[in-house]
Amino acid sequence: MLQIEGLSFNWSEDLHFTYGLSIARGEILALQGPSGVGKTTLLELIAGFQTPTAGKLTWDDIDLLTLQPWQRPVTTVFQADNLFAHLTCLNNVIVGLGPKEKMRPNLLNQIHDYFAQLGLAGLQQRMPSQISGGQQQRVALVRALIRARPILLLDESFSALDWEMRQECFDALKTVVKSHNMAALLVSHDSRDTAYLGCGELRLTLL
């Protein structure tokens, strides 16, 4: 379980956020709220890109605050710039496996299955510049799914996709969250997302 208690961060003297929430394994939580309310900041604190001023952040009772971003059991799909422009789509996925993980034939098959499942069949050897922005986001989702870290952070990752394609991504997301027993935190501005995912939602507000 991902547990956050009194996790605080100050952007400035006037702008500071404090968070508290928990997400169980196999659960998806949608984070909502107006711009500037600190949704992305929360994701960056969990991923380790920002240093909190106080609070607790644990995963199955392991203190994540003592770990570097690459040591945390986290995968993030950002709003944009998820792919390296000089690598093919397939290599963009493989590069996410990490230096210690070896490429196995069944893993490659799994990658191809995800490509097919997310409407990306045949695009494996394309460069990011040769596919649309929506397709790029889906390639990033394939990488997140194949990395299978137990905490998945999605920062408005699908907001650029049309509703039909977003549903397909959500289907894949739901499947993998269940099958890998992951905890997913999704920043979303669209109430249809939570309805389709059938997940809990947390509305952040400025005090």
Partner: peptide, 25 residues
């Protein structure tokens, strides 16, 4: 600016990052 967070989250560091990501870019 555009790759630090991504590389960090994907454990792309040091020589591996330079060889695979920074040098080609």
């Amino acid at each position: 600016q555009s790759q630090d967070k991504l590389c960090s989250s994907l454990d792309l560091r040091g020589w591996r990052r330079f060889r695979l990501i920074t040098f080609p870019a």
